[in-house]
Design a protein around this nucleic acid. Structure first.
Length: 131
RNA sequence: UGAGCAAGCUGGACAACCGCGGGCGCAGCGCCGAAAGGCCGCGCGUGAGGAAAGUCCGGGCUCCACAGGGCAAGGGUGCCGGGUAAUUCCCGGUGAAGGCGACUUCAAGGACAGUGCAACAGAAAUAGACCGCCGGUUUUGGCCGGCAAGGAUGGAAAGGUGAGGUAAGAGCUCACCAGCAGCCUGGCGACAGGCUGGCUCUGUAAACCCCACCUGGAGCAACACCGUGGAGGGACGUAUUGUGGCCCGCAAGUCCCGGGGAGGUGGCUGGAGCCGUACAGAAAUGUUCGGCCUGGAUAGAUGGUUGUCCACGACAGAACCCGGCUUACAGGCUUGCUCAGGAA
């Protein structure tokens, strides 16, 4: 597998924000911009609402980890930016992973149609503390 | 045992799998490159804090400025001695205040340099007669004079307590205490103790202020180098090229100044360093010897999942580096001491 290449410069971020489209979920916002027949690139950041560097680092790490484990399922040829949002109970990895897959499916970025091949353990975790 | 005081330490543990930054090593000769080397791969070790935070002080470091002196401005700097690179920090002491005590707390120079303020209450706030006490007088209403003891107000009322004294009183006189001044003794000193003297002088300087002391400015986005490089200005015009018959001139050219936006490298971590040891010291701390190398990112590395355990995990993330201060913080541990009760 290729190593994840990251967006680095400010103009790269600005291009995705301005020219790209975005999809929001509860724990994150996905910005994406087609770059036609190149590899997938990722930028990770945290929203202004996330206070404190510890919380910001935590949000970005979860986003990076979720992306890392699902990079091979996403269509190549895009620049992606994942923005972590502030959530009142702190988000777990499973929340972030589920939101990431949901956002990618709504944006049409998944290679497979995602018909119930999502993680069964994730469903358990999210449905357990509801009552 | 309970309550408490002080000092210090710690800040989930273990395992498996999958990842990240940087370091060292290795081989492949897979990719890029003229090469040096880089990318990819594998392995080994390593990788956030006690506050990394607030940016409040003190320094190192870098650039700019700089004859000397004075003024201004700023400074919560302000008892004494020591420590330190330095401090407003630390240690020890003095004084004051609080606590039964262990101990804690402290903007702790100056109020005869000047100015201001002291609300309300109260008769009166550096100033006094409301009630009261005493004497005189009286037309029985009061009037005149003396008095700061008592009442009352207040944060503060003219040193305090007692005795003498007196018409009643008062440092008016005396004793002790407090304060003030001088001298002597002890101490490096802040001060402490003693003696003598005169006889009592309000508080507030975290009010202005005065005195002493300190202070050049900006900060790693400093700064240095490489690369990129659009205008514009000045000088030369000797040699070369173009225009031209030739000269001047113009343009190219050479040199200097200047310089808008992308970037990259260094600075960048070995340091007032950490651990142990011995010595000096009451302690902060210093010195000797030995050992160790322990983050360096740049959209910014320490993570994710699972399992087991327990006291069920607080505050919180390096961005040039140190020393301090302040603030936030779930719990846990150690040592010394005090008080109370009990037992022996």
């Amino acid at each position: 597998m290729l190593k994840t290449t990251t967006l680095r410069k400010n103009y790269e971020f600005g291009r995705v924000y301005q020219k790209g489209q975005h999809v929001a979920a509860r724990t994150l916002v996905l910005h994406y911009f087609s770059r036609r027949h190149r590899q997938l690139r990722l930028g990770v950041t945290a929203s202004r609402q996330v206070k404190g560097s510890v919380a910001r680092n935590r949000a970005k790490r979860l986003l990076r980890e979720a992306y890392r484990l699902h990079e091979h399922e996403i269509k190549p040829g895009y620049d992606l930016i994942l923005v972590g949002r502030a959530v009142d109970p702190p988000a777990t990895y499973w929340d972030v992973e589920a939101d990431l897959l949901r956002a990618c499916r709504r944006a049409g970025l998944l290679l497979l149609p995602l018909q119930e091949r999502g993680r069964p353990s994730g469903e358990q975790k999210t449905s357990e503390p509801a009552p």
